[in-house]
Design a protein around this nucleic acid. Structure first.
Lengths: 241, 241
DNA sequence: TGACAATGACTGACTAGTCAGTCATACATG
DNA sequence: CATGTATGACTGACTAGTCAGTCATTGTCA
């Protein structure tokens, strides 16, 4: 009812500008929900990029909290402070939003965690530092839930599992393998076969991440202490108090 | 807002014959659709129990494959060879089906994996046997996906996370701690702090389970070999070839 | 510079479809 | 037959995705 204004027709083509800048996927802050506000506001394209970011951030929260299928785009829109239609100006559909969200969110994960290829001190020190960073940056933050999200939705989104394997898992394991081999060569590690299964080194860290989101309230876990004990295992006894 | 979604239903009374045999979790049946047919058919209650089992088995497959939200009860019914209404004769709603399904499926997980409280041989042998069983019974089978399912849906179903923690995690860790303390007392393990973090011992096994469902096709993992190396780490060097 | 036109990002009501849960009916069995 | 069980068509709530229309911003010209 109502309206039915004067035709308008034409512009049927509706090119539907896809790209929209995007600039760096950085997606760092996870900005608060209702950021619509006044703001002198910069250029149109800048605002557009901001919106896009807000959508991704909101989607991150919603998908984390509910999983892919149970997330409503209405909620994402509300949280991002935009109309639902706006989402479709930036993303082809729900799935595209989800996949790009994961991609975007993984980037900082990689850059933050890149373990030092050739450590300054002992390998153990390097790994301890790495573990510390990981606890700080992943287990404690919302990024940890990203890992859980990938575990959860991976099988249903092969593209995401592929991407995650390629960008995070294989790289991380390769780097870890390098460190292990170095440590073996230096005599820091006495089980050379460990280099074949770098997963072993990372396993407790992963468990810590998962533990945090599932069981923290049942039994809090001192992840850093646990990782130290694990390093004791790997490097034999306690080398430094 | 408003929505008022699942509501949580407290599952008050509803005795709902818990057990229902279940026998082997094997979940082999997967009966063909139109199996209604003749069959001398046993007593009514027996048939009812059969139906219930078929529903649980079908639900298991569907929930594993799609997750809670994306699973359609129509599909579960079709797979179980019953009408949708029948599901509601056995379960209050989708959520109740899901929760009981997990409960039901976890039982064999516990019984199969209960590690020997006091091993006959060395603790290392006991753990190696345990690891072997775990690979055989979990990582390889559909039960592994159950673990993934719990990781995935746990945060949204606190009842399930609670149950899983209580019945599997805390018990398993306690048993593991006992073994570790024994090994420490016997001198098999030289890092006594390990008893504080039994998670470390299980972590690679968990990783193996997750790896199988996410990355097996990218990079197959010889779980047993990995666990052996990990045991080498724990027990120091390779004690037995 | 000021006024007007073009642009296209944004909106939100709407469509088409999905699916959990119900219930009148049909059926089996004791 | 009477009673309990199974069925599946149906309902009602809900949601992904669309699109005609709006309006702030940008561009153009006198």
């Amino acid at each position: 009812m109502s309206k039915t204004p004067p035709e308008r027709t034409d512009r049927s083509g509706s090119t539907r500008a896809r790209n929209a800048g995007l600039s760096r996927g950085e997606s760092p802050p996870l900005r608060a929900a209702g950021t619509r506000s006044a703001k002198p506001a910069s250029s149109r394209s800048e605002r557009s990029a901001e919106r896009r970011e807000a959508i991704v951030a909101a989607a991150f929260d919603e998908f984390i909290a509910r999983g892919f299928a149970a997330t409503r785009l209405d909620d994402v829109a509300k949280r991002a402070g935009v109309a639902k239609g706006t989402i479709y100006l930036h993303f082809k559909d729900k799935e595209a939003l989800f996949e790009e969200l994961v991609r975007t969110a993984i980037v900082p994960l990689i850059t933050r965690l890149a373990p030092p290829a050739q450590p300054v001190g002992s390998v153990r020190e390097a790994l301890e530092h790495f573990a510390f960073t990981l606890i700080q940056e992943v287990a404690t933050t919302r990024r940890g839930d990203l890992v859980r999200l990938i575990v959860a939705e991976g099988p249903r989104f092969p593209a995401i599992a592929d991407f995650y394997y390629r960008e995070v898992v294989s790289r991380g394991l390769a780097a870890m393998r390098g460190l292990i081999e170095l440590a073996v060569a230096r005599g820091e590690i006495r089980v050379p076969e460990l280099a074949n299964y770098p997963q072993i080194v990372v396993a407790p860290a992963m468990i810590a991440v998962i533990w945090k989101s599932l069981f923290e309230r049942h039994a809090p876990l001192d992840a850093m202490a646990m990782l130290r004990v694990h390093l004791d295992l790997i490097f034999g006894e306690r080398s430094a108090s």
